[in-house]
């Protein structure tokens, strides 16, 4: 079997303790929440921490507060299973439930957390392999090597964003609260991500994601659609999240469409918001937005199914997500 290398496991009981442990061990340390991605990656030696700071016993990370009317804050340690069952979320934020319930398998959702999913490592079929496998291609730039084998001319790593919940959070306008040695900061979900397979997020090394802050759900509806080969296990090959607010007359008051699973960062299709806001939905407008999704999805040969297929699916998924929320036939 593939074995875990030796490591130390620290078990802080509070966020403050976790922050200081992380600071004490510097680059040798990593955070682990559910461990569904960290441990397999340690077996394959993609991650080689000497110290793991486990967040499982930090009680505050498991809390859910607020109401859909005033907004809900979700502790980063809330499990994916809990997300799909939590009354405040189920009643107000169907996009979150739809996003969480299609992650991996029931067993892994019991362990995996919302925070872990939002920060999950980017993936690539040249990178998500064992040490010996990676040695046989002379490694890649994401770990130990210098070339991006997806496109050997590329100056940056092209690993693909694989979080299902990131586009959901962006479509809802969620904000994220981080705690670090210097105190707290809150940023828009969209600002957490960077179009770079290696430096794919803006979390500072000593920081811990503490809470996800969902704004009021009043008037909003949301959805998430995921492309993958199988109905379980698989990471997204494309994920489309839509948050939508319609007025009394049926006009679109506000809308956010975010795409994940293509490119190194999830992205908001901002032009879609401009095109749709304030208008009555129509076939023509939906098609216009769908075609934008085609242009903005940069699928590459770094995961399953051929890239052009994934790109072609972006408009189909955007169209279906929008039509679903607007109550139109698919």
């Amino acid at each position: 079997m593939l074995r875990l290398p030796p490591f130390r496991y620290l078990s802080p009981r509070s966020l403050e303790e976790a922050v200081s442990m992380l600071a004490d061990h510097g680059p040798e340390a990593m955070l682990v929440a559910g461990g569904t991605d960290v441990y397999p990656k340690m077996r394959r030696r993609q991650f080689e921490p000497k110290v793991l700071v486990g967040l499982a016993r930090v009680g505050s990370l498991r809390e859910v507060r607020g109401t859909p009317t005033e907004g809900v804050s979700i502790g980063a340690g809330v499990t994916l299973t809990q997300l799909t069952r939590q009354a405040e979320i189920v009643t107000g934020y169907s996009g979150v439930v739809e996003g969480a319930e299609v992650i991996s398998t029931p067993q892994l959702r019991n362990m995996g957390t919302i925070g872990g999913n939002l920060l999950v490592d980017t993936r690539c079929t040249y990178y998500d392999q064992t040490y010996q496998w990676r040695k046989s291609i002379d490694f890649c730039m994401k770990k130990e090597g210098s070339t991006c084998w997806v496109a050997p001319g590329s100056p940056r790593c092209l690993a693909v964003t694989s979080t299902d919940l990131a586009p959901v959070m962006m479509s809802l306008g969620a904000r994220l609260r981080f705690v670090g040695p210097e105190g707290e900061r809150v940023l828009d979900a969209a600002d957490l991500y960077r179009e770079d397979g290696i430096h794919y997020h803006t979390r500072q090394p000593g920081e811990i994601l503490a809470e996800i802050l969902l704004p009021s759900a009043e008037g909003w509806s949301s959805t998430y659609r995921k492309l993958r080969r199988r109905e379980a296990f698989d990471f997204p090959l494309l994920g489309v999240a839509v948050g939508l607010r319609t007025g009394a007359g049926g006009e679109i008051e506000d809308v956010r469409i975010a795409i994940g699973g293509v490119g190194s960062a999830p992205q908001l299709i901002e032009e879609a918001t401009e095109i749709l806001c304030g208008k009555q939905p129509s076939e023509e407008l939906i098609e216009k937005v769908a075609s934008m999704a085609f242009r903005s999805s940069k699928a590459l040969d770094n995961t399953d199914l051929i890239p052009i297929y994934r790109k072609k699916m972006a408009p189909v998924f955007v169209r279906r997500a929008l039509r679903g929320l607007l109550g139109l036939s698919p």
């Binding site: 079929t125 998500d128 392999q129 496998w133 046989s136 291609i137 084998w149 080969r229 199988r230 109905e231 379980a232 296990f233 698989d234 399953d304």
Partner: peptide
Amino acid sequence: RRGVHKIPSLLDYKSPTFKE
């Protein structure tokens, strides 16, 4: 691909699940 098995893992070598 490049002389190497492209997907030698249970996650990436796609095989149907119960749901399929």
